[in-house]
Design a protein around this nucleic acid. Structure first.
Lengths: 218, 218
DNA sequence: CACAAAAACGAACGTTCGTGCTATTATATT
DNA sequence: AATATAATAGCACGAACGTTCGTTTTTGTG
C-alpha cells in the first residue's frame, strides 16, 4: 500500500516516539506498584514483549528511564486532575474540583498502585540526585497549585481571610496522603469516604457564609 | 538455623544473640534510608565488617531478615515512644505525650531516615505476603494505641463526647505523616514546627473547658 | 584442658541487574 | 524502487543479588 503524502508538521509521530510513549505508559503503572527502583528494564521489556536492549536504547540509562517515567506520570496527573479543574471557574469550585480529582487519583482510578508520587516521594526521600529532585519539584508544584486555589477562593470571599493558603493546602494534602495509606496498606474500603468527609468538613470549617455549597461526596 | 534463644534474665545472652541484635540495629537504620528491599545482605555485611554468609546464617533468608528488622524497629518504637507515654497518667496527658514522641520520631531522632514504618508501608502496600502483613499489623496496633488514648481522654472528660477516637487518631496520624513527607522530601525545616502547631490546634479544637493545658511546642 | 557446639568465613552457584556492542530489520525520504 | 536512517534484536560483559556448602575459628561447658 503506497503511503499517502501527508508531510505536514503535525503528521503522525514517528514509530520511535510512539513506542517510547507506550513503554512509559506501562512503566508508570509498573512503578506505581513496584516502585521506581523496582521498575526493572528486563521486567518492563517482558511486559511489552520486546528485547531488553531494544527498550534500553530509547533511554540510554536506567536513571533516564526513571526520569522519563516521572515526567509521564506528571503529564498524566496534569491531564487528569489539574487541567479539568483549571477549565472551570476560580474560587471554591476549583479547589473542590482539585480535591475530587486528587482523591479519585489516590483511589487508584488514574494509577494502578495508588498514588504514584507519594510512593516515589518516600522511596527517594533519603537519597540525592536528579530523580529525587524531579519528584520533589513535581510535588512542590502540585502543592503550590493547591495553595493557589486556596488563595483564589480566599480572594473570592469563599474562604475566611484568616486562612493561610500554604498551611491549608498542606493539611488537605496530609489527609489525602493518609487516605492513600489506609486504603493501600490496611485495605480500608471506607478510607476514601472518610477522607472525603474529613476534607469537606475541614473546608467548610473555614468557609464564609457567602461561599457556595461544598460537596465532595456524591 | 538456631531458634530464638530465650535467655534468662541473669545470664549474659549468647554471642549469637548479641551479634544478631547488633546486625538488626544497623539493619533498621539502613532500611529506614534505603527501604526494606534496598536493604541488602552484602551491604549490611560490609557495614558490619563481616562476611555475607556469616550474617546470612543468622536469618536463613532475606524475608526472615526483613521480618526480624521490622520486629526490631517495632521494639525500638515501643521502647522510645509508647512505653514512656504509658508510664504517665491516662487522659489528655498521655495523648499529648504519644504525639510528642511520635513527632520526635518522625523528626528522625529515633530512626536515621525518618519514619521507618511509613516508608515501609508505602514500599510494600502493593504486594502481599508475611512482610506486608507484619507492617500492616504493626501500623494497625499503633493506630489502635492512638485511638485508645483518644478514647481515654474522652472518658476523662478532657475531650468532647462527640470525638470519634478512630477517626481523630487517623487525622493526627495523617498530619504527622505529612510532616514526615515535607521534612524528608522538601527539606522543609519548619515542617515539624508547623505540624506541632497544627496537631495542637486540632486537639484544642475538641478539648473541653475542664481539659488541662495542651502543649506540644517547647 | 579437652572437646562438642555455635558462629563466622571464603568460595562458588545460578540469576538478574544495568549496560555495551554488532547485526538485522523496519521506517521514512528521494 | 532504492536508499539512508531509525528502531529493534541478539549476545556478552561485569557486578551484585540471595543462597548453599564445606571449612575454619571461636565460644561455652564438663
Amino acid at each position: 500500500m503506497p503511503a499517502t503524502k501527508t508531510a505536514t508538521a503535525e503528521s503522525r509521530p514517528s514509530k520511535g516516539t510512539r513506542t517510547r510513549e507506550s513503554i512509559l505508559r506501562v512503566a508508570v503503572d509498573l512503578a506505581s506498584v513496584e516502585g521506581l527502583e523496582g521498575l526493572t528494564i528486563g521486567r518492563l521489556a517482558d511486559e511489552l514483549r520486546m528485547s531488553k536492549s531494544g527498550l534500553f536504547a530509547h533511554f540510554g540509562s536506567k536513571e533516564e528511564l526513571q526520569l522519563a517515567t516521572i515526567e509521564m506520570a506528571r503529564q498524566i496527573f496534569v491531564e487528569h486532575i489539574i487541567r479539568p479543574a483549571l477549565a472551570g471557574p476560580e474560587g471554591i469550585e476549583r479547589l473542590v474540583k482539585l480535591c475530587q480529582g486528587w482523591l479519585g487519583h489516590v483511589e487508584g482510578k488514574v494509577f494502578k498502585g495508588g498514588c504514584f508520587f507519594t510512593a516515589a516521594s518516600l522511596e527517594f526521600d533519603g537519597r540525592s540526585g536528579p530523580v529525587r529532585d524531579a519528584i520533589a519539584d513535581t510535588m512542590k508544584a502540585w502543592l503550590a497549585t493547591l495553595a493557589r486555589a486556596v488563595d483564589a477562593a480566599k480572594k473570592a470571599r469563599h474562604l475566611k481571610a484568616t486562612v493561610e493558603p500554604e498551611q491549608f493546602a498542606f493539611e488537605i494534602y496530609s489527609l489525602a496522603m493518609g487516605a492513600n495509606w489506609a486504603l493501600q496498606l490496611l485495605d480500608d474500603r471506607n478510607a476514601m469516604k472518610k477522607a472525603r468527609e474529613n476534607i469537606q468538613q475541614r473546608i467548610r470549617s473555614v468557609a464564609t457564609p457567602s461561599c457556595p455549597p461544598i460537596r465532595l461526596i456524591k
